[in-house]
Design a protein around this nucleic acid. Structure first.
Lengths: 227, 227
DNA sequence: GTTTGTGAAGTATTTCACAGCC
DNA sequence: GGCTGTGAAATACTTCACAAAC
């Protein structure tokens, strides 16, 4: 058996993770097109916009259905709506933040989340000095309030911005509270059960791989003739 | 011709980008092991630590040389040193920041960069009200000083934390100043020439793909029997 | 004439499995 | 006995190319 999409236990076709990770980019591009008043777009045009091949875009979309019209392309409005629905972006997601140090405060005041439907509705911190403070319109709560807070407010997503040494413990607690999606800002790979998804935001890791290319380039230029 | 690593123009074996992106994770794990006093590690053990298969680790390393001893494993200290050298982490990298709004200030005060050898040595902003201010021990300079600043301070890496509408323009200017590596915090995909590497730090994109799994999970649970 | 949706072909990446060495 | 390094096999992902639809 070769590479056709595997079957999940419940029989639905499994969508490769890379494909899912590209959908938000399509959403973003389509949103821009929509704002500009463009009503129809071909995979060719969309591909130029976000630097992808038209074939890849069409193939990605084909995992979820048939959204285009031959000879014309895709209705921007319709495709955008469908992708938003598929990704679950057609509703508000309540997010809980753990850790209100410098980084946590920056996350709380970052204006990019709420327009996209991600609303930080609670903040927690282990430090008693932080507890009770108002940060970005939210009262910081102690960690022992985590379970109640998550349940009462319907929090489904956790953002973790605590020191590296505490990440695993905090994520364990979030998982115990039935949070199944976590965005981790600390430079550690936490271990989670298979049904929990973690995304790491790690600028240091990004820098450390980029320097490989700078270094390689430098060496190549040293070896090669002067340019 | 099949999948053996391609040859670059200068004849060096081309290393797949995914492989390079994993090396910093190895560095991180080895650093931790080293601090704990572990002197030797097998690919098996390392794999358990960072959730990767031993075969993948061995294969990745084999692109760069032979670092282990059969029957024993890898010397933590030696492998760490080699990987740091390969990635160019055995020296200090000077970084320039563009944009000192809320996000830029958070980046400037983030304590995670300098211990890893990334030193932010200059900050620039287009807003005259920001220019001249001291932020995190650095004087904010106007954008027209970018070229001189980059050259005088030996800046090789740019961090971009400006509003989405200005990202492309700012990145173009950085590229003109011969900066070849850029970390972009704004939610836009900038276009750059092939010799420039960009890494996007984009928590919204991360959230938007994670909700797919939450949504899918919910639907599956609704369809399936109660658990 | 244009562009989608998609099997088939082509690449890339991961994993296997084992000879060779400690 | 244990573990690396690596070709070969397996799997995953991308691109091609064309019939079908407009």
């Amino acid at each position: 058996m070769t590479a056709r999409p595997a079957q999940s236990p419940n029989g639905a076709a499994e969508v490769p993770e890379v494909v899912v990770s590209r959908l938000p980019q399509y959403v973003r591009a389509l949103t821009r097109l929509s704002q500009q008043g463009t009503t129809v777009v071909s995979s060719q045009q969309l591909g130029e916009l976000i630097q992808m091949t038209p074939a890849q875009i069409r193939k990605d979309l084909s995992y979820f259905g048939r959204f285009g019209k031959q000879g014309r392309g895709y209705s921007v409005k319709y495709l955008l709506g469908e992708l938003r629905r598929i990704l679950g972006l057609d509703r508000e997601w309540r997010v809980g933040l753990v850790g209100v140090g410098r980084l946590g405060r920056a996350i709380l005041s970052y204006p990019g989340f709420s327009p996209e439907g991600f609303r930080i509705v609670a903040a927690f911190d282990a430090d008693p000095r932080q507890v009770g403070q108002m940060v970005g319109g939210i009262m910081v709560q102690p960690m022992h309030r985590l379970r109640e807070g998550v349940q009462e407010l319907g929090i489904r997503i956790g953002i973790v911005a605590v020191p590296a040494s505490q990440v695993q413990e905090v994520i364990d607690r979030l998982v115990q509270c039935d949070v199944r999606a976590i965005v981790n800002y600390a430079p550690v790979n936490a271990q989670v059960p298979a049904h929990v998804r973690v995304r790491n935001i790690d600028p240091v890791l990004a820098l450390q791989s980029i320097t490989f290319y700078l270094t390689t380039l430098e060496n190549a230029e040293k070896r090669g003739a002067a340019r």
